[in-house]
């Protein structure tokens, strides 16, 4: 009963529906295209939306990279990668960003800029940034169509009045091509600037909420902000104002994970594990050459 699944698990009609939705998503940057979203054999919320996009795109010529929290070895990334390997015989998988043609990711955009021939698929739990100000989808669709984000801006402004700071930490509302405001998925603010004028196509899949949207390459992506309270990425400086470095590779220009040591002290390490590995290898190469 377990054998005999179609290449890519989904049947070809399901893939065609996703593909048609992707074309409309690209043509209307930032607009959430509804689609029927089939049940996948992993939980809603575990990346079923991203997975349906990946399975509708992937072919035998592809090399796939799957990451979660920036890591290829996170349990969820391993699980998704194994499932895709099992249902798509003939494809290659990799942990190296430079080798990948398709990248499926949860919560991070890789540190190294993407290449034009790559496609990034982001998994989305909540696709609609307006949900915090308007519970009815019916009304939100009209607000999006009219690019009416006044209530969202008021919400941001209330934050500033209360805390003197915009308190949105991740899923930062970002305006695409001067019209639609998207939820860029739970990427940290650190990754939001990568949406602007991206060399690669970025696709967003929300399986449970049955939506697909896109940020095409070379498209304006602007985080909502005010003139006097600018958008700010995460601050990784210590108390003395010095930028913290990755304890493993020494990088000072990456998003860092924070670890608690047994003695209560903290250490920091690159969230993007492939970037960390490559930096480490490059350092070792340089060292080897110097010693030689």
């Amino acid at each position: 009963m377990s054998a005999g699944y179609n290449f890519g698990f989904l049947d070809e009609h399901a893939k065609k529906e996703v593909r048609r939705a992707i074309l409309k998503a690209i043509s209307i940057p930032g607009y959430q295209v509804p689609y029927s979203s089939r049940e996948m054999p992993m939980g809603r919320g575990f990346g079923t939306g991203g997975l349906q996009i990946t399975l509708s795109l992937i072919g035998a010529n592809d090399t796939l990279k799957v990451i979660d929290q920036g890591s290829d070895d996170s349990v969820n990334a391993v699980n998704l990668r194994q499932f895709i390997e099992m249902t798509c015989p003939g494809i290659d998988t990799t942990t190296r960003l430079s080798e990948a043609t398709l990248i499926q990711s949860r919560h991070r955009i890789p540190e190294t800029p993407l290449k034009p021939e790559q496609v990034l698929v982001l998994q989305v739990p909540y696709p609609d940034p307006l949900v915090v100000v308007e519970p009815s989808e019916d009304k939100r669709k009209i607000m999006h169509g009219e690019a009416d984000y006044a209530r969202l801006l008021v919400k941001l402004y209330e934050d500033i009045v209360k805390f003197d700071e915009i308190t949105i930490s991740h899923r930062y509302p970002t305006r695409i091509n001067d019209h639609y405001v998207i939820d860029p998925s739970p990427i940290p603010r650190w990754d939001v600037p990568k949406l602007d004028n991206s060399p690669a196509l970025i696709l967003f899949g929300a399986g449970r909420e049955k939506k697909i949207y896109a940020v095409p390459p070379h498209t304006k992506g602007e985080p909502l902000a005010f003139e006097d309270v600018p958008f700010r990425v995460e601050d990784f400086r210590d108390a003395q104002g010095k930028r913290r470095a990755c304890a493993r590779c020494g990088a000072t220009d990456t998003f860092l994970d924070e670890f608690m040591n047994e003695d209560g002290s903290k250490r920091y390490q690159c969230s993007d594990s492939d970037y960390c590995d490559e930096t480490l290898e490059a350092d070792m190469m340089t060292e080897a050459t110097t010693h030689a």
Binding site: G43, G45, H170, P188, E234
Partner: peptide
């Protein structure tokens, strides 16, 4: 599915 997904790592967003 959605209730279960909260068990997955969320340390980037928590950071």
């Amino acid at each position: 599915g959605f209730a279960s997904h909260y068990k997955m790592p969320h340390y980037v967003t928590f950071q």
